[in-house]
Amino acid sequence: MRPASIAVVALALGGCSGAVDDGPDLPVTRVIPPENASYAGVQTRLLEPDLVNFLVEMRGARAPADVDAYARCAAAQYALIRGFGFARHIRTNVEEEGGVWRGDAVYTVSPALPPGARNIDAEVVVATCQQDGIPTV
């Protein structure tokens, strides 16, 4: 069986089941995790001083949006750990093979709101992840 490779685009997440837009400024796309989700960890790779690659793995995902949410939570916590308040989503690739879902996400981190439409407020996202039960770094 070949792994299904799916590029997750942040704009497409708004139409996913369980996604909620939390406001007009910096929307927080919420994906309520599946009941049987098992989060297997995050690997972080610094590509540039402000560019970070997150490799996440989980079981029990329903769709790529669940894996993308896990990567977003990791990116938000990482930004806070590094003393930054914001992150910008560059891309997330998701593969599933034998019930194991893997995400390969890239984010920029910055102290000020970066230009672009795919920004996240790290404090808000981490709080939402904690509320929803999705682990961070």
Rank of each mutant, 00 (worst) to 15 (best):
R59T: 10
M1I: 12
G41M: 01
E123P: 07
N93V: 13
P3T: 08
A71N: 01
A7T: 15
R88S: 14
P111C: 04
V126C: 00
L46I: 09
S17R: 00
P111H: 07
P135T: 10
E35F: 00
A4G: 08
P64N: 09
P27W: 05
P115C: 11
V106A: 07
G60R: 04
V109L: 13
G23R: 10
N119G: 03
P49L: 02
V9Y: 11
A127C: 11
F86H: 08
H89E: 02
P3S: 12
P114K: 02
T44V: 15
H89M: 11
G99L: 06
P34S: 12
E97D: 03
V8S: 07
V9K: 10
A122S: 07
A7V: 14
E123G: 10
A71P: 02
R59P: 00
R59L: 06
E95T: 15
L113D: 11
D68W: 11
E123W: 05
P135F: 12
A71D: 03
V67K: 10
E57W: 12
R59M: 09
L80H: 09
L55I: 13
S38F: 07
G60K: 04
G103V: 05
A19C: 11
Q131G: 04
N119P: 03
R118H: 15
R88I: 13
G23M: 10
A61I: 00
A122I: 06
L47V: 06
I120D: 01
P64M: 10
T29C: 12
D121N: 09
N36F: 00
V94N: 04
R72W: 04
D25I: 15
